[in-house]
C-alpha cells in the first residue's frame, strides 16, 4: 500500500493527467475523501483520481484554481481568478461535483 505522497495525479475523461500538490488538491472535499486512506477508496491506494465527467480543459482550470486558492490562503483583497466565459458552465458543473458545500451554505432558509 502506497503511503501519502506529496503529489497526487488527477486524470480527466479524455486521458490528460495532472500532477498536483496533495495539499492543494484537498481543497475539494470530494478529492480529500477520495484520497483519505481512512475511507479505503482505490484512489487512496494509487494516489490517482479519475474523473469520467470532467474533461482535460476543465480539469486544467480546476488544478489552476487549486494553486490559486492555496497561494491566496488567508490573504486580503484577492483578485478573482480569470477563466474564459465559454468554460464557465462546464466549470460550474465540475465545481459543484468537487465541492458542494458552498451551495448548501447558500441554500434556502426555511421561515
Amino acid at each position: 500500500m502506497a503511503s501519502e505522497t506529496e503529489y497526487v495525479t488527477l486524470v480527466s475523461s479524455d486521458g490528460f493527467s495532472f500532477v498536483v500538490l496533495r495539499s492543494a488538491a484537498i481543497k475539494s472535499p470530494a478529492i480529500m475523501r477520495m484520497l483519505d486512506p481512512a475511507y479505503g477508496f482505490a484512489e487512496s491506494k494509487t494516489n490517482t483520481c479519475h474523473f469520467e465527467n470532467i474533461n482535460g480543459l476543465v480539469l486544467e482550470k480546476v488544478c489552476e484554481y487549486f494553486y490559486y486558492y492555496q497561494k491566496h490562503k488567508g490573504a486580503k483583497d484577492v483578485t478573482d481568478m480569470d477563466f474564459p466565459i465559454e468554460l464557465s458552465l462546464e466549470l460550474v458543473m465540475a465545481a459543484d461535483y468537487l465541492d458542494s458545500r458552498d451551495t448548501h451554505q447558500a441554500g434556502f432558509i426555511y421561515i
Binding site: 490562503k73 464557465s88 468537487l98 458552498d102
Partner: peptide, 11 residues
Amino acid sequence: GGAKSLLQLCI
C-alpha cells in the same frame, strides 16, 4: 478570507 470558492467565481 482568502480566495472565493470556484463555484462562486463561476456563478
